[in-house]
Design a protein around this nucleic acid. Sequence first.
DNA 1: AGCTTTCGCTACGAGTCGTAGCGTAATGGC
DNA 2: GCCATTACGCTACGACTCGTAGCGAAAGCT
Lengths: 207, 207
Amino acid sequence: MQSSTPATRPGRPRSAAAATAILAATREALVEVGWSRLTLGDVATRAGVAKTTLYRRWSGKNELVVDAVAELFDELELPDRGSLAADIEGVVLQFAAILARPEARSGLMAVVAESTRDDALRERIRASIVERQKHLVVLGRSRAQKRGELPPETDPEEAARTADLIFDVVAGAVVHRTLVSAEPVDEEWVRSFAGLLLNGLTADATA
Amino acid sequence: MQSSTPATRPGRPRSAAAATAILAATREALVEVGWSRLTLGDVATRAGVAKTTLYRRWSGKNELVVDAVAELFDELELPDRGSLAADIEGVVLQFAAILARPEARSGLMAVVAESTRDDALRERIRASIVERQKHLVVLGRSRAQKRGELPPETDPEEAARTADLIFDVVAGAVVHRTLVSAEPVDEEWVRSFAGLLLNGLTADATA
DNA sequence: AGCTTTCGCTACGAGTCGTAGCGTAATGGC
DNA sequence: GCCATTACGCTACGACTCGTAGCGAAAGCT
C-alpha cells in the first residue's frame, strides 16, 4: 500500500504483522475512543509495537486512519444481480453495512474533514477508498446498458459526468442518511431510494 | 441560543459582544488552521477574551464549532422561483455556496464525525443546522403540490418518509460532491442533478 | 561473515488541556 | 445607595500528548 520502494532493498524488512496489528488497533481505538481522543501512543500500545515504529511508517494520525478505514472497503463488490434495480439495491446495502460500523463512521468523516485542508490527504482518500466505489458505478452502468435498461453512451465525456453525478448521489445519500440523519439504511429505504434513482435515470437525464 | 435560564437572573449578564466575537474568531481559526489544530486558547486570544470565559459558555470544541458553523446557515431561504425545478436549483446553489466556504467545509464534517460518538452533539447539530434545511424541503414540496407539479400526499407518514429521502439525497449529493469528489457545484452540475431528481420524483416514486 | 534497515525502549522539550483562585466589573433587588 | 450575585480577565497549575532523538539488539540480503 505504501511501498515506495518495491525493489528489494537491503536491511531488515518491515514486519507485515506489525502493519496488520497497527491497523487493527487503530480501528479498535476508533470504536472505543473515537477520532478526537485517539492518540498514536494508545494505538501503539494496543498493537504491541513501539510508538517510534508507528511514526516510521505513517506521517500522522490522518494517514494512519485513512489506511485503517480503507481496509473496510475491501469487501465492496458488485455481483450481477440481473437488473439495474437489484444491482443498485445490492451495492447500497453493502455500502450501508460498512458505514454501520462505528470505526467507519467516525474515522471516514473525520479524515474527509481534514482533507479539506490537505490535498495530499484528499488524494490518498480518493485513491484508496473513493476510486474503488466509483468503479462500481461504472460497472453497474455498463451492465445496465448491455441489458438495454439504460441508453448507450454517446459522448464519453458526458458519460463520465453522468457517472460522477450518480456516484455523488448514491454515496452522498447513504452517508447523509447514516451520519447526519442517523436513520438506518434498511431495505425499505433502499427500495425507495433505488426507485427514485431509477426513475431519474431512465427518463431523459439531461433536462 | 443556549439560554437555559430565560428568566431575568441576578448578577452581571453575559456579554453578547463576547459571544459574537468568539464565534467569529472560531470561524476565522477554522479557515486558518483547520479543525484538528484549532485550540480554544487560540480562539480566545483571537476573540480578545479570556480562555475561562470561553469555557464558561461552551463545554468544548465540538459545541463551539457547531454554533459557529450554524450561523453560516442563517442565510438559507427559499424564495418562490415559480417552478419546482427552479426552486431545487436555487436551494442547491445556496447550500453549495455555504459549503464553498472553508470554515463550513472543515467545521461541519468534523462535528458530524464527532457526533457519531456523542448523541447530545448530534441533537445539537440537528436542531441548529439540519432541521432548518429540512424545512426547506417540506416547503418546496408543498409549493410544488399547489402548482400541480407533484401529486398531493395521501398518507402523512409516507409523506414524511419521502421528505426525509429527498432531504438526504439533496444534501448528501451536494456535500459529497463538494467534500469528497472536491468538484465545484456549478450551474451545469445543478441542472443535471435537478433534472435527475425531478424525473425521479414526478414518476411513480414508490416503485 | 558484513552491511543495512527495522525494532523496542527510554527520555526529552514543547504545546495543549481544563480547572482553580483571585480581584474587579456590571447588573438587579431592597 | 447598598448588597448579593454573576461574569470577566488574569495567572498559574498538574496532567497529558506530541513528535523526535539516541541507543543497543534483531533480522534480513549478498
